[in-house]
Structure formats: C-alpha cells, structure tokens
C-alpha cells in the first residue's frame, strides 16, 4: 500500500510539474547522465584546483567556531580517482594539521591526518565517512563526494531550471538517512540544494550551494551551507582564491606534503 501511495505521489508531483513546465514534454536525459554530470561539476571541475575556505560553525545556542584551510585537488588522469590535500591555518589548535585523501570510488579511500604537535601521521579508518569533519556540520563525505553507486537514483521532476532527483541508499543500514533529494541546476549541473530525510520522513539535514561564479571557465559555488535541523546548528563555508588547471604535480599529494606542505601550490598566486 505504501509503495502504491508513493507511486501515486510521485505521479502527482510529476503531473504538477507538467502543468508548470511545458518543456518537460521533451524527454529529460537519463538519471545516470544527470548524476554523472552533477558529480563532475561538483567534484571534478578542471584537471586540478585550489581553494581557500573558511567555515563558521554555529551551534543551536548561537555560539560560533571558525576553521580556515586551503584545499588542493587533483584528478587522476583516466580514472575517477582523485587526490585531496587540506592544510589548516586556523584556529591555532589545528594550525599545520594536514589532511590527505586518495579517493578511490571503486574501492575504499585512503585517508591520513598529520598532527604536528606529536609529529604523528594517523591513518583514518575507511568506515567513518558520515561523521563531522573537524567539528563542522559537514561530513568527510561532503568534502570529497559520495560514491554514486552507493545509492539508487530517480528523477522526481524537472522544472524549467532544475532537475530534482531522489536518491535512496542501497544499503540502508550503512547511513543515517533514508533518502536524499537533490535540486540540480540545469545550466551548470551544480546541486544547489540537497535535503536528507530520515526514516520517519522528516527532512533533518539541508545542504546548499550558492553564489555560483564562473572561475577559469568552471561554475563554482563560493558559499555553501549545511543545516542540521535536529540539533539546530549550521555550518557556512565561504570559498575564495579559487583557481583551476594549475598543473599541480602528483608529488603534492604524497606523504611528504603532510610534514612539508607544498607552499608553492598552497600560497595564493
């Protein structure tokens, strides 16, 4: 019965869209193509890139914390693998802390954290991806992207400007959400809003991208926000100093960069 209702609702939602948008009469691209393009636009823009970021983490009582860091990213040619290097400058507790990720969508990511006070290179277990990234409401997985094959995707509706997708995890026990819904901008293929729904059907987490600017030819969100509706807190991330296709060498994403971060690529040019 429940499934029938769901189908009915989906049909109704589709019908509503039809009334609002006549352009839908033309077939939308297949879902797999939309999510693939959205994934490319969000995480794979350019051959490589750098960005400065600062996060303002606000709890339910309005108390704020700050994080500031620089991110280098590189696509591994001829594959969907990627490398990330994140070097923290603020607050002083995190200064010179370095986070290195070798992302491998077809297997597990390799992740390391360097803690300078103890000269300790800590490897992070592959499992815990949906936990807080350095105290923010953002998860590790939000930084480097969730594996597209972990969810089933369906197109809920298409508006004049956006595709609305619903994604349901294949392994429901592995994540805290029951499903999530993504609004993807048709022009840039960037997700502008993602809503996570829990098992009781309530939206409890919202992720948004805004202030999309074109940088080096790639549409880039300069602001991002994650709201945690359960706790009432949120994290806002502001980006600047973004650039793409710099020719960052592979060596910037090795063990060496943990102890000796490559200032040549991290410093603003």
């Amino acid at each position: 019965m429940k499934t029938n209702l769901k189908q009915l609702a989906t049909g109704l939602a589709g019908g509503l869209t039809l009334m609002l948008s006549s352009s839908l009469l033309l077939a939308a691209p297949p879902v797999s193509e939309i999510i693939e393009k959205a994934n490319q636009a969000s995480y794979y823009a350019g051959q490589d890139g750098r960005s400065e970021a600062r996060m303002r983490i606000e709890d339910s009582r309005g108390r704020t914390q700050t994080r500031q860091f620089t991110v280098l990213r590189q696509n591994v040619e001829g594959s969907d693998r990627q490398n990330y290097l994140v070097v923290f400058s603020r607050p002083s507790e995190y200064r010179n802390t370095v986070f290195l990720v070798h992302k491998n969508p077809s297997a597990d990511d390799d992740r390391w954290l360097y803690l300078p006070d103890m000269d300790l290179v800590r490897r992070i277990a592959p499992g815990d991806k949906r936990t807080s990234f350095v105290g923010a409401h953002i998860f590790y997985e939000d930084i480097s992207g969730r594996n597209l094959n972990d969810d089933n995707h369906e197109l809920l509706e298409e508006t004049e400007d956006q595709y609305v997708l619903k994604s349901t995890p294949k392994d429901a026990g592995s994540v805290e959400f029951a499903s999530f819904q993504t609004w993807i901008d048709k022009e840039t293929f960037l997700p502008v809003r993602i809503e996570y729904t829990d098992s009781s059907g309530e939206v409890y987490r919202i992720m948004e991208n805004a202030n999309i600017e074109e940088v080096d030819g790639y549409p880039t969100p300069m602001m991002m926000r994650v709201q945690d509706l359960n706790s009432g807190g949120n994290t806002v991330v502001q980006f600047r100093g973004v650039s793409y296709d710099l020719g960052i060498p592979d060596s910037a994403f090795t063990e060496r960069s943990l102890r000796n971060p490559p200032s040549e690529w991290l410093d603003r040019r």
Partner: peptide
C-alpha cells in the same frame, strides 16, 4: 506528499530568499 511537493516547488521558485545566508 502534496505538501512537501508544493514546499519543494516554492523553494525552487524563490531561491533568492533562501540565499540570505550566502551574502556573508
């Protein structure tokens, strides 16, 4: 379901209002 569909549509229709936080 109808309610959430309508809500979703209205959010899509008014992205500017939703983006106050993004001014910084």
């Amino acid at each position: 379901y109808l309610g959430s569909a309508t809500l979703a549509l209205s959010l899509v229709a008014t992205p500017v209002l939703a983006n106050d936080w993004a001014s910084g």
